[in-house]
């Protein structure tokens, strides 16, 4: 969520308020369902960060396993994010041909294909 608020120290106090107001607006405006998707996204991101840190700090020896694990989190993340954007009612105008049900079906197929490749690459 918070990406680069460490650098703008030269800014005025306004950087704080965009973040805070962003958080407030977010909690107010998003539906429960989207929040649920977002928790899954956060979990995936955390898992990916852990794997990446392990790879960088400890060893990257079974590089294919690292790539498989990391790619599974990243891939799942983007698929879920896509699902989120497709399900979000605000985006209905963009997705004329994809109903929310179809969106979920696409998400499921994509995830299954992703996991198939991940497990093939893992070992």
């Amino acid at each position: 969520m918070s990406s680069s608020n460490s650098s703008p120290s030269a800014q005025s106090t306004s950087p704080q308020s965009p973040i805070l107001s962003l958080w407030k607006a977010y909690t107010q405006n998003t539906s429960d369902r989207l929040k649920f998707i977002d928790t899954f996204l956060v979990f995936l991101m955390a898992s990916g960060v852990i794997q990446f840190l392990y790879c960088v700090l400890v060893t990257n020896f079974p590089f294919n396993a690292f790539l498989a694990g990391f790619a599974s989190t990243v891939g799942q993340f983007v698929l879920t994010a896509s699902l989120r954007s497709q399900v979000n009612p605000e985006n209905r105008s963009e997705f004329k041909e994809v109903s929310p049900e179809r969106a979920f079906a696409d998400f499921a197929i994509g995830s299954i294909v992703l996991h198939f490749f991940v497990f093939n690459f893992l070992g």
């Binding site: 891939g75 983007v78 698929l79 994010a81 896509s82 954007s85 497709q86 985006n91 997705f95 992703l114």
Partner: peptide, 14 residues
């Protein structure tokens, strides 16, 4: 647009 996002990310990741 979100369509671009969906299309590119699903293509790239998998």
């Amino acid at each position: 647009s979100s369509r671009l996002y969906v299309a590119y990310c699903s293509w790239y990741a998998i």
